[in-house]
Design a protein around this nucleic acid. Sequence first.
DNA 1: CTGAAAGCGCTTACAG
DNA 2: CTGAAAGCGCTTACAG
Lengths: 339, 339
Amino acid sequence: MTILTETPGSKSITIADVAEALGVSKTTVSRAISGKGRIGNETRERVMKYIEEHDYQPNMIARSLAQSKTYNLALSMPGNSKFLDSSFFQQCMLGICKAAAAADYDVVVSMVENDPLSQLERMVKNHKVDGVILSCTWEDDVQAKFLKEQNFPFVTIGYSKDREIIQVDHNHKEACQELTSILLMKGLRRIALLGSNKRVVITGRRFAGYKRAFEKQGLTVDMELVNLDVEDPGLAENAVQDMLQKKVECIICMDDIICYQVLNVLKKMNVSIPTDVRVASFYNSSVLDNHAPAITSLKFDAAHVGMVACQTLVNYIEGQEVHHRTLLDYEVVLKESTK
Amino acid sequence: MTILTETPGSKSITIADVAEALGVSKTTVSRAISGKGRIGNETRERVMKYIEEHDYQPNMIARSLAQSKTYNLALSMPGNSKFLDSSFFQQCMLGICKAAAAADYDVVVSMVENDPLSQLERMVKNHKVDGVILSCTWEDDVQAKFLKEQNFPFVTIGYSKDREIIQVDHNHKEACQELTSILLMKGLRRIALLGSNKRVVITGRRFAGYKRAFEKQGLTVDMELVNLDVEDPGLAENAVQDMLQKKVECIICMDDIICYQVLNVLKKMNVSIPTDVRVASFYNSSVLDNHAPAITSLKFDAAHVGMVACQTLVNYIEGQEVHHRTLLDYEVVLKESTK
DNA sequence: CTGAAAGCGCTTACAG
DNA sequence: CTGAAAGCGCTTACAG
């Protein structure tokens, strides 16, 4: 047990201290630091030298108040355990943090579990952040709706029909369409599609791509083979058995989490890949690296989409022009599992 | 393309507006809101009623400056891809966010990739946070050293010999000792231990537990069977082959990431579990849920350790007494893989 | 119980 | 090119 006795950190030096030591005004010091406003070259150098030597660090709180700008970005993340198992959001967060740091912003996270609005609303109204990144969007997204109403700067990682919303995403529709087309061209017809939640926007986009691929070949989708609500591991087992009964030739899993489950179930049931059934997945995450057979999958650069989203938001906040919709590229990585 | 035209968000109402509308002083309004200082019951109610009706939201920036307190906590996370695949840190972050929200703090993340100090130093010196949570500690941890020197409040999720450091962790040593003891009691002797990085503190703690279990039985550890540097998937394959050549009877994997790899490699090599070799893992994460055979593992509640760490830090910051070392409990979940 | 005033550490018109 | 002063929206001794 202990009690906090000393005040933490040593008292830092302020702009006033610098001004006094140098016999100039605070205004001058401020100008030297910010680089804004006319200032003599020699004066600036004197100031810069002093703050360098004395390790002056601006108090960002004070700057925030004066400028009404926090240099903080909020990142809304799903707090649901389904999502936590996937490394997508962590990778994405890494990209966001990097881009933010490069632009001198910090990122404060809000993990959404039940009430998606309370924390976000507080952050926005309390002036804790300058903008928001929504890392996972839903049909009729409550957060996006709120932010739009408030006219508060935000960007979604994920597609939205609403072109007023600034959005950055991988082209999930096209990706899933291409993957499906390839499978169709191999002569496969009974292709199952497994997703984990219908209400998440990307699920819908992928299904749209899947459907489009069939239509382009003049085929129609058999909705019996589409299950977009495989929420948890327990359901995966049922879903797989169901699909096998329906004599599917291939199973596309919308993310690696479902894919692990599916692979485990198939193994348990002694169904071999690709002989008995083919399997394809999304994300191509490293956990499947040593899997035999290697698993065909779509590959997205999660860190990259995070970076781009963050940069876009910062640009927007700082008054620059931004694209309202950015669709990033993907890769189809064909491996043994769909041979 | 678009340009930011309107100022985002509508102008919010301030304490001065409330004071004026009610014909009282700003001091009074402030007191009503904070609950500090004597104030008439009736006056307080009038104020509260007004701010309720007019949706007044305090400007936290201004409060921060006045109190020199940010109500922000920094969370330092490993940005290395090895760690990103594990859901431990995400779960942990969830717990931290919950506890922070409950105490009216926000959490700003810093993902450490190469330079562990630059961002942390800026945050601390720029007064962006009131305290720091280190979610992963290393031998001779640079961040911990810096924070200690600065006398800045922080807590580590992870054990430290240094009892001055406030630390919260699961009892990894005891956990690994118990698991190993159980295996020894089954008559197993050639027990391999695979870890992913020797320099991470928990790796060392677990090894210590493993060793202690042998010693308690009057046995000595065969260091040939201990490989604590299985950094990436590629190395997993070699490590497993190496261990099989050494005729191990059991493989303990220090985390589920390694374990997946090991399981994949064993399958590829047609080694069956538990007949040919037994396998045990850490974390018991849901990804292994449907694995056949079910995998014995140690189970830690990541969200819980995050919550406790965060609460402890908040208490410390707010001047309360705190335990300097908190060791949380774990579970040994015995399954088929070690039968 | 209540208020006037100073202060937190910056920025930024405005004036010179 | 430089400075005095007001302001950002709160809190908090101090005085009454």
